[in-house]
Write a protein that binds this DNA or RNA. Structure first.
Lengths: 70, 70
DNA sequence: TAAAAATGTAATATATAATTGACATTTGTG
DNA sequence: CACAAATGTCAATTATATATTACATTTTTA
């Protein structure tokens, strides 16, 4: 998975820390960190929760034209 | 998770069986069945793969205004 | 510039996505 | 109708998303 800079930017736009977002969507801070870093392949439910909190769509935050690795 | 009828319809539009789609995205037929039935909370990577094969966006196939259960 | 807040990282544990194999039921077609 | 293909379902297993705890590093701010 590639780094998710769009997520990082959307979070910054809302002035939320990784911890704030984690709490808002009900996961651990490390999970948000791992998603932004591209280490995790999150579930669609978590992606939707993040989108709702940040006011973005799935396509805006989680679409990728091509799958890079694995 | 709610039944994913949009996925079922998009698959029908491409005249693909559950088995065809499963093979195209590299998962088992049961996984596709479970997603359509709403039993699984698939990963974003699998959702993207399905979207690419069916020529749809994440928002078209996997967005939900509200999370129903659990 | 020191303290606090935020972020990065790692190891271990747990929940659940996904596989596999097998069979039952439904649907389409000769 | 009979056969085949597609779909539905179940149980057991494996892979991996996520949690938890803990600490190190970077960034912010008083």
């Amino acid at each position: 998975m590639a780094k998710n800079l769009r997520l990082k930017a959307a979070r910054a736009e809302k002035d939320m820390t990784q911890g704030d977002l984690a709490e808002a969507v009900g996961v651990s801070r490390q999970t948000i960190h791992a998603i932004e870093k591209g280490e995790y392949n999150p579930t669609i439910r978590l992606c939707r929760a993040i989108c709702r909190v940040l006011g973005k769509t799935l396509d805006e935050l989680f679409w990728e034209e091509e799958e890079t690795e694995q």
